[in-house]
């Protein structure tokens, strides 16, 4: 079990126990519901966007330690970021978890790097990316709404 320390690092266990920005947002600009039908993980992501910046982001729901901590760290990383930077971070994070090849254009992951241990547990990759896909869906819905107005 000790070999799992790489996967379940202290910081991950901490975010799991005390998830940051773990709350429902009453009137979000963007919202999406993420669901992993295979395991039943459910995540809601709420967004407030001002002038193309993620002014506030929060989540709630129910998931495993990898899912919860990834969502928690995502909200910390994205708060205050421009939409374009957020998208670039999502792409880079996704590459780091799923892709063997190097992507020179990828941006540094910073604190999110602790989650890249998931790469060695392919069935758990979806746990780590669920919140990000949900964020992406919320953003796309928001942009969709804007473009139709």
């Amino acid at each position: 079990m000790d070999n799992l320390r790489e996967l379940y690092q202290e910081v991950i266990l901490d975010h799991n126990k005390n998830p940051r920005n773990f709350r429902k947002m009453e009137t979000p600009d963007g919202f999406a519901h993420g669901n992993n039908p295979l395991c039943g993980d459910q995540i809601d992501v709420y967004l407030r966007i001002t002038d193309g910046m993620v002014e506030d982001i929060s989540f709630d729901g129910n998931g495993c330690a990898i899912c919860t901590s990834s969502a928690s760290m995502m909200t910390q990383a994205l708060k205050g970021m421009s939409e374009a930077d957020a998208k670039a971070l999502f792409t880079s994070f996704h590459h780091a978890l799923t892709d063997k090849e190097e992507h020179p254009e990828d941006v540094p992951l910073g604190k999110l790097k602790v989650l890249t241990g998931v790469k060695d547990y392919p069935v758990r990759v979806k746990c780590a990316t669920l919140a990000w896909h949900t964020f992406d869906a919320a953003l796309k819905k928001l942009q969709g709404n804007i473009s139709t107005e």
Binding site: M1, D41, G63, C64, I66, R124, C127
Partner: peptide
């Protein structure tokens, strides 16, 4: 501990 984490552990 969430069941998925139990499974991996």
């Amino acid at each position: 501990v969430h069941p998925h984490d139990i499974g991996t552990m």
